[in-house]
């Protein structure tokens, strides 16, 4: 009879190799068929795995496309330092883009609601960067297990000239035959990690020693608790509400983003093995720590229609 204990005992290394092979196939297909691809690099664990896979896919050649980081100006300081270290270590062509107009207008995650802030500093900024680079394909690290509308997105997702997504007009994807053809002005978002789960990502990082920011590991960090979410005061730009005083708590992050919008979790996991064990036991979804997803029902679908990755 079925053993419903949660830890998969199948051959994990073989399973991860299969996922790796599929992702590498996808990346090579893009390189062979599209004119000017770019890889979105968000510095998180999924981007770290995607970067590792890209190095493998084209080895011994260097990664044949640039990496693009859309910087909102509110990322954890450690993320920026990590990004620059990776670029140096692997000789990456790194393009960093910030929405200068949004910045000049002082758009920030405190005075503006999460939806407005995300739209201007992430969605609009991304569109600006893609237009400026003239890219016809952009890799993203999204996975189908992350969120319900992601489960229905293709691996190759065509976007209109203004980067919109039409969920009802997606190309059927059969076998591993991807239709990479785009009209002038259109582009393709490509998700090579579509079939990976969060646990796969962690097990792969563990197996291959993929570098990730320390923020994923538990440490004592200055935390304020707001509406049940643990916010780490990463710099002195976090406006404290009356009575609020950061206190040191042992926390880590399950996903990384803008520090004012990313909830930490209390944890003692200081090693990859600890994270994997925690992962297997958790009862909350990965995105539960992301404030931007809670705005409205079906909010991810809405954001993607507008051009969000």
């Amino acid at each position: 009879m079925t053993d419903l204990s949660l830890e998969p005992h199948g051959d994990t290394a073989a399973h991860l190799r299969q996922l790796e092979d599929e992702s590498i196939h996808i990346m090579r297909e893009v390189m062979a068929e599209l004119r000017n691809p770019v890889m979105l690099y968000s510095i998180g664990k999924d981007s770290s795995v995607m970067l590792h896979l890209a190095r493998k896919a084209f080895f011994p050649a260097p990664i044949p496309f640039p990496l693009l980081h859309v910087d909102t100006g509110w990322k954890f300081r450690e993320m920026i330092a990590f990004r620059d270290r990776m670029a140096r270590e692997f000789g990456l062509r790194l393009v960093v883009h910030q929405n200068a107009e949004g910045r000049a207008r002082g758009i920030n995650p405190f005075d503006h609601d999460a939806g407005t802030y995300t739209h201007i500093m992430k969605t609009v900024a991304l569109k600006q960067a893609l237009d400026a680079g003239g890219y016809d394909a952009a890799f993203g690290g999204a996975r189908r297990d992350e969120e319900v509308s992601r489960a229905k997105e293709r691996i190759f997702s065509v976007r209109s000239a203004d980067h919109g997504w039409d969920p009802k007009n997606q190309r059927p994807e059969l076998w591993n035959l991807f239709n990479c053809r785009v009209a002038r002005g259109q582009s393709i978002r490509v998700f090579p990690l579509s079939n990976w789960t969060e646990l796969d990502i962690w097990q792969y990082i563990e197996l291959h020693g993929v570098a990730i920011p320390d923020l994923y590991f538990a440490a004592d960090r200055p935390v304020v608790e707001r509406d049940g979410t643990l916010i780490v005061a990463d710099d002195d730009r976090l406006p404290l509400r009356p009575g609020e005083k950061p206190e040191m708590r042992r926390v880590r992050f399950r996903t990384l983003g803008c520090y004012p919008l990313t909830g930490a979790i209390e944890s003692d996991a200081t090693t990859l093995a600890g994270i994997v064990a925690e992962m297997i036991a958790t009862r909350r979804s990965e995105r539960s720590g992301r404030l931007i997803d809670k705005d409205q029902a079906a909010s991810m679908e809405q954001k993607k229609r507008e051009g969000y990755f």
């Binding site: 079925t2 053993d3 419903l4 204990s5 830890e7 998969p8 005992h9 199948g10 399973h15 189908r144 297990d145 489960a151 229905k152 969920p167 009802k168 997606q170 059927p172 579509s194 079939n195 789960t197 646990l199």
Partner: peptide, 17 residues
């Protein structure tokens, strides 16, 4: 249900898509 969706789960013996 309008479109094809892919789901993931695992047991002790196998992983499934």
């Amino acid at each position: 249900t309008i479109d094809v969706a892919y789901r993931f789960f695992a047991t002790a013996r196998r992983r499934f898509i």
